[in-house]
């Protein structure tokens, strides 16, 4: 039962992800990306973390994708649909794809945490609750968490500097 549900969600995720790349019209791509993100949220529920799923929908579908649509609507979509993505850049594109794929595979094979989960059938977070998640984030993963916060802050300041007019 659970395997069937997982396979269903996974298939839809992959088809939607492919649609993001294949669709000519940017708005169709954005919609496909939204479907993909909702499916990933469903996978989080299957993995026993409803909090992450709700957050995924709240942040990515509710805010980020609406912003993406906002930007797309400012563009001349008919023009964008006519232009081919990656003009004559097939070989660099394929090389990048192969590199990324190899990296991903390496990560999957060599990660202890993943093999721990897949062999012991035990989740990293016991219970998967909100409390466990925050405790893990603020004790074991404090440094990465703080680094990400600083990077986000830098991006925020950068965006404000870029959009400010030159008038002094």
């Amino acid at each position: 039962m659970e395997l069937g549900i997982f396979l269903f969600f996974a298939t839809v995720t992959i088809i939607a992800a492919l649609m993001v790349v294949i669709a000519r019209n940017p708005v169709h791509s954005a919609l496909a990306l939204m479907v993909c993100l909702v499916q990933v949220a469903a996978l989080f529920v299957l993995l026993g973390s409803p909090f992450l799923a709700a957050l995924q929908i709240f942040v990515y579908v509710g805010a980020v994708m609406v912003l993406v649509l906002f930007v797309i609507m400012m563009l001349d979509v008919r023009e964008a649909a006519r232009v081919r993505f990656l003009q004559g850049a097939l070989i660099p594109g394929l090389v990048t794809l192969a590199l990324l794929g190899a990296q991903m595979l390496l990560l999957l094979i060599s990660s202890d945490r993943l093999s721990f989960v897949s062999t012991n059938q035990a989740p990293i977070l016991k219970g998967g609750g909100l409390e466990q998640l925050s405790k893990t984030m603020f004790t074991d993963y404090l440094l990465p968490f703080e680094v990400i916060s600083v990077i986000l802050l830098v991006a925020l300041v950068g965006a404000i500097v870029l959009t400010r007019s030159e008038v002094k």
Binding site: V38, A54, L55, I57, V61, A63, G129, L130
Partner: peptide, 13 residues
């Protein structure tokens, strides 16, 4: 246990 977040998120769709 995440009802509030769920509501705000889904209403956003």
């Amino acid at each position: 246990n995440v009802a509030l977040l769920f509501i705000l998120g889904v209403a956003g769709i």
